[in-house]
């Protein structure tokens, strides 16, 4: 059994690493679901004035033909002006990079940002696309048959869970 790092500690690390990189015009956008939880906390702790954004990338996935639409699609919510903005995109676990590719495409359908940076709680390697994060909580090597997910308790406490990859399930 692998010992997983404490998600709350990683988030504290990530917050401190981002602190010097944000300004009042920085917008935070979290990818559903785990990334949105993290973005909400980062948005609050870094005291950013622009409204928090969330993205559900279901309509932009590259595996729609294989697995169809995600059972639970949530609305994306971007209420700041994307055109000309400086965005930090937040995801929980960075893996193949396909989710980030989909998120970038979706963001550009709202407008043309001046810059986008990427923050991830965990970078587990295994990239299949040329995508690199600017901010990470920790890097972690995991076997490819394992999935790592962020979970939130009823009190709002974040934790990591490792489980076996479901052959029919979604990639990260």
């Amino acid at each position: 059994m692998m010992l997983l790092p404490d998600a709350e500690q990683l988030l504290a690390n990530l917050t401190e690493r981002m602190r010097s990189g944000v300004a009042t015009d920085t917008a935070i956008v979290g990818i559903h679901t785990g990334g949105a939880w993290l973005a909400e906390r980062l948005h609050h702790d870094l005291k950013l004035p622009l409204p928090l954004g969330t993205l559900d990338i279901s309509f932009y996935r590259d595996d729609f033909d294989k697995i169809g639409l995600h059972a639970q699609v949530r609305p994306s919510d971007i209420s700041f002006e994307v055109e000309g903005s400086h965005i930090i995109l937040v995801d929980d676990v960075l893996y193949t990079g396909r989710t980030i590719r989909a998120a970038l495409n979706e963001l550009f359908d709202y407008g043309r940002p001046s810059s986008i940076r990427l923050a991830a709680l965990i970078d587990r390697g295994g990239r299949e696309l040329p995508i690199a994060p600017q901010y990470v909580g920790a890097t972690l090597a995991l076997p490819s048959d394992k999935m790592l997910a962020l979970e939130k308790s009823s009190t709002g406490k974040l934790s990591l869970r490792l489980y076996d990859k479901n052959p029919m399930g979604h990639e990260q």
């Binding site: 932009y60 639409l69 639970q72 709202y110």
Partner: peptide, 23 residues
């Protein structure tokens, strides 16, 4: 309900500058 919930997400899409998704 799944149809109605998915449609909620598309309402957001139809309010954007680019009202199109690649799905």
């Amino acid at each position: 309900l799944n149809i109605l919930d998915t449609a909620e997400s598309f309402v957001g899409v139809t309010e954007r500058d680019v009202k199109k998704v690649p799905i």
